[in-house]
Amino acid sequence: MYLYLKAAHVIALATFIGGLILLGLTLRGVGLERHADGTRSFGATVLKWDGYITAPALAVVWIVGIAMVFGGGWETSAWFLAKLPLVIFLSGLHSASGAALKRTIATEGEVSFFFRHTAVWTLLAFSIIAVLAVAKPI
């Protein structure tokens, strides 16, 4: 059963990370240009994708991840405790980036330095999480 949970976790994680990188690239300015009719269709499409695909994938990541942690008895392991703040950071980054994209589309405002680099923060945090989860160095 554990291997099936692990597979579900990896699939959901890949979907979530891909969606968060897509949000980050969109906030970077890809697809935020106005069309002749005044719409920003790509940004709106990214928000729909986020709501239908990325956010549910995040929920699966959390649910299955918690099941694996408690099923494996890792709740007090140093590697898990080290990666947990990064997992929380990525969850918060997802919510904040989605809100920033909605705000940017609605107001045509500038995107802050932090949100323009969402894809970078995502890759950095995910890389550290992957090393901690796979290698369990501590």
Rank of each mutant, 00 (worst) to 15 (best):
H94K: 07
G43I: 07
F113K: 03
L22D: 00
E108L: 13
A59R: 08
L81T: 09
W74R: 03
A96P: 06
W62Y: 09
I129R: 02
G92C: 15
V61I: 11
A55V: 14
L47V: 06
L3T: 14
T26N: 05
A57C: 09
G29S: 01
T54F: 03
V64E: 01
P56Q: 09
V64W: 01
F126K: 01
L3K: 13
I53K: 05
S127H: 01
A99L: 12
H9F: 10
L123H: 09
P56R: 11
F42Y: 06
V87E: 06
S41Y: 08
A119I: 12
A82S: 11
I63V: 15
T15E: 09
G43E: 05
I66N: 12
I105R: 06
I128R: 00
A135S: 10
T76Y: 14
K102S: 12
T76K: 14
G19T: 00
T45E: 09
G51K: 09
I129C: 03
H117Y: 05
T76W: 14
A125Q: 04
E33V: 14
S41W: 07
I138S: 08
T54Y: 05
G38V: 14
W62D: 02
G73E: 06
Y52S: 08
F89K: 10
L3G: 14
I53N: 03
L101V: 04
I129Y: 05
F42N: 00
F42P: 00
I11N: 02
E33K: 13
V10D: 11
K6D: 10
T26L: 04
W74K: 03
H9C: 12
R103W: 09
L90T: 11
V10S: 12
G43W: 02
F80S: 03
